[in-house]
């Protein structure tokens, strides 16, 4: 129930931000759409821990900044490879997934895919198979900096809830 309320509040905020037109009729339509979406989400059984506002702590912002830095780094690397096509050495690799919560695992998989140079091919309970563009990208992933950052993020979410 807590998650349903926080999802509803989130949707109301989103609607207020997107609408820009504040008249009574439009407000009723907005309220109706929010209720419809919450009802559909409950019916689809997708309301869960992801809608917990505690997850949106300052550590998430810090993680996003760090991820942005990684994005720039790996993008420059892959852009260099575009013009040195003979240096492309694709290989597959498997790394362990040390996280407990499903949200953390999905965050890990998505972050790996988001940084160019590595693409998640398969994510299971305890390991992640990835396709890397060359040796350097593969070693970056195997070093496990990203997994440690997400563990750090996970600890915070547990500590506050």
């Amino acid at each position: 129930m807590r998650y349903v309320i926080s999802l509803g509040l989130l949707l109301v905020l989103l609607w207020l931000a997107l609408s820009g037109v504040y008249k009574p009729v439009i407000f009723f339509l907005g309220a109706g759409s929010v209720i419809l979406v919450v009802w559909l989400s409950v019916r689809m059984d997708v309301v869960g821990v992801e809608h917990n506002p505690v997850l949106f702590s300052w550590r998430l912002a810090a993680y996003w900044l760090w991820l942005l830095g990684q994005l720039v780094k790996s993008n420059l690397h892959v852009s260099k490879l575009v013009f040195q096509i003979d240096k492309v050495r694709p290989r597959l690799l498997t790394v362990p997934v040390p996280h407990q919560a499903a949200v953390s695992k999905v965050t890990y998989g998505n972050s790996v895919t988001l940084t160019p140079g590595t693409v998640t091919l398969r994510l299971t309970r305890d390991r992640l198979e990835a396709h890397a563009l060359d040796e350097e990208s593969a070693r970056d992933l195997e070093a496990g900096h990203m997994a440690r950052k997400i563990s750090w993020l996970e600890r915070q979410a547990e500590g506050e809830s």
Partner: peptide
């Protein structure tokens, strides 16, 4: 090949 092209599409989609 296809899998390496995914990385190229990653550049345009992210940075």
């Amino acid at each position: 090949d296809f899998y390496t092209r995914l990385h190229a599409s990653g550049i345009t989609d992210t940075l």
